[in-house]
Design a protein around this nucleic acid. Structure first.
Lengths: 369, 369
DNA sequence: CTGAAAGCGCTTACAG
DNA sequence: CTGAAAGCGCTTACAG
């Protein structure tokens, strides 16, 4: 704009604006009647009017964001009470670009382990106003990635995923989304990775050491599903037996099928039949071990006399078996609470003291070993 | 307005409007630079521009709503592909007043029954573009109501709830929300109530008849949790024994604690100790019965010789017991699929042929009876 | 069959 | 510490 034009504009801009507003008012008076799409819902505006403040102040007062005059806060809260106002999550999500959802990705709901984890997670997240969106991956990497994509569309406020083992593409999906993410069940010291879990490898080694200490020498490892955590337990077993000079690859009994009582029973039968010298079997999960104990009863194989049986996770029922099952108690409820707590901090933008938390495990020696 | 004024207005309204628009343009030219809050996300508008149609047409083409020229649909879809457009659920929810969430209320995740139900529900709903929001009520009516309120704030597109038994307030909450709702596990012929399940009472009666047919006369009923469905099974048991003139209220062994293997074991011990004449025990859930079978092994009580044991639901592991457990197989996966399918119809506004679906049950006679 | 306008109910970015 | 304006990305209601 030239100088003259600029001056002209400055001189005219105010009157023109007022004129525009006036004409606009006239136009609206002649406009068709208000087309209401109101839901009948009490909105933030209603609260603002009732409290005699602006909508932004209500918004800030309710979220506790920035400083708001305590007196206004009180007035707002009174109005909220009186009108029974509940914020609309969709509007909030659209405006803020964050929903109140937390995506939780777990491998399988039929493994009681994850049910316990989930319970603890929800118990922490719900009171904080977050809804959990559960995705079951069925131990399938591509299904996990697919679920992740779907969940991220909903712009979750945070996410919880099981384990650390995933492809580059999936890891990038998580990183690039910018959504705070905590990994559970395993633990890592890699910078920028948040995790709560324990060392599956060490736990596997600890159980193997226990069996060695009991004088067992031919200790088989029976694993199903073969997810990363099972393989880590296998590593622990390998390592301890290697140290003791007792590692025999023929005693690795691996089956990619999902673990179950029935599969455990079958594995037990096979191991007993094909490796008669085996004097202990370490099952990667309690349901397998429970099935093995039932099979032992059926086949009249004395446990632990002829063969010791050990499990992992201390699932419900293991203490009821005959003989009661020796196992490793894993702190999944504690993991769930701690991970949810860490995620809460991340979502609030608070710093997290320890990004990699190791909650340990506990050897539970009962009668079967 | 007087006549003259009206005429004047009509004469002036068009020029005034044009003037307003013009002045508005000038104002905007002098307005501060565009304050962008854009997310970088590909929006429906981008698709519309790329396809050379209006945003509404894109919206309609994507939702398959109303008739859209097939050629335009093709152009829109090509643009969607090219740009990698994904609709924003929050914006959609805000504008349409319906989210793509389905709220699912179940009593307990630690009961494998509901895990199977949930799996089936998700398998049906996910491909249709719905996310399941799981709420665990812990068999607590007030917790259920609380969850319901929270979920309804999110304006779910539909909901699935367990059972039919709830207070007036909660029922009204559901009705007044206008959200389509299907009830699972029980079935009802009440008009306006959608349900998929089976008759718990009949199933309880059927198991009792089976035990009677096997010559049992002193049949105990051992129930835990005491939720409505357990009480219906109890009713079935009462009815059959009453018919046979064999009903003895002292053989009702009821405990409000959650069912578990350990509790089943304790109940078995107590019944055997206090009611030595009992020749059969019908447990309201398989986990109890499994615990009872373990206790029988421990106590060396021969099953079924001395006492028959029966369970309910045919949970995982029941076929692995020693002796294998006689039970009632409940079609929870089928219930989940059918209920989700029915809900899908309701959410689409399609008519539902049969609002009350009975999927039956199956007696599974194994060795324990 | 298609579109321009308005609106859903919040929050962000800017200004004071 | 507070607010007016604009905007988030869709769909509804109306009109043609």
């Amino acid at each position: 704009m030239g100088r003259l034009a600029a001056r002209l504009w400055i001189a005219l801009s105010y009157p023109l604006r007022r004129l525009a507003e006036y004409v606009d008012t006239l136009r609206k008076m002649s406009a068709p009647p208000h087309r209401s799409r109101a839901t009948g819902r009490v909105t933030l505006n209603d609260v603002a009017q009732a409290a005699g403040v602006s909508p932004i102040t209500v918004s800030r007062a309710l979220r506790g964001e920035r400083a708001v005059d305590p007196e206004l806060v009180a007035r707002v809260q009174a109005a909220v009470q009186r009108l029974g106002y509940v914020p609309d999550p969709a509007a909030r999500a659209l405006a803020s670009r964050h929903s109140s959802h937390v995506a939780v990705l777990i491998p399988m709901l039929s493994n009681a382990l994850f049910v316990d984890l989930l319970e603890a997670v929800q118990r922490t997240l719900r009171p904080a106003g977050y809804q959990t969106l559960i995705g079951v991956t069925h131990y399938d990497a591509s299904e996990e990635e697919q679920l992740l994509r779907e969940q991220l569309q909903h712009r979750p406020a945070g996410m919880l995923v099981t384990g650390l083992d995933r492809g580059v593409a999936t890891r990038q999906l998580i990183t690039q989304s910018g959504v705070p993410c905590v990994h559970v069940m395993e633990t890592s010291q890699v910078p920028g990775v948040y995790s709560v879990g324990f060392s599956q490898t060490e736990a596997g080694a600890a159980m193997t050491r226990h069996l060695l200490e009991r004088g067992r020498r031919r200790i088989a490892f029976a694993g199903a599903q073969l997810d990363p955590r099972v393989l880590q337990r296998l590593d622990g077993w390998r390592h301890e037996l290697g140290q003791a000079g007792l590692h025999d690859p023929k005693l690795e009994w691996l089956n990619p099928a999902p673990s179950s009582l029935a599969l455990g029973g079958r594995m037990f039968e096979q191991i007993i039949a094909m490796k008669p010298a085996v004097d202990a079997i370490f099952f990667c999960n309690d349901d397998l071990a429970q099935g093995a104990l039932m099979a032992a009863l059926r086949l009249r194989v004395p446990v632990p006399k002829r063969v010791a049986v050990a499990g992992f996770n201390d699932l419900t029922g293991s203490d009821q078996m005959l003989p009661a099952l020796t196992t490793v108690r894993t702190p999944r409820a504690e993991i769930g609470s701690a991970a949810a707590g860490m995620l809460l901090s991340l979502m609030r933008g608070e710093p997290v003291a320890r990004p990699g938390v190791d909650l340990g495990y506990e050897l539970v020696v009962r009668e079967s070993s």
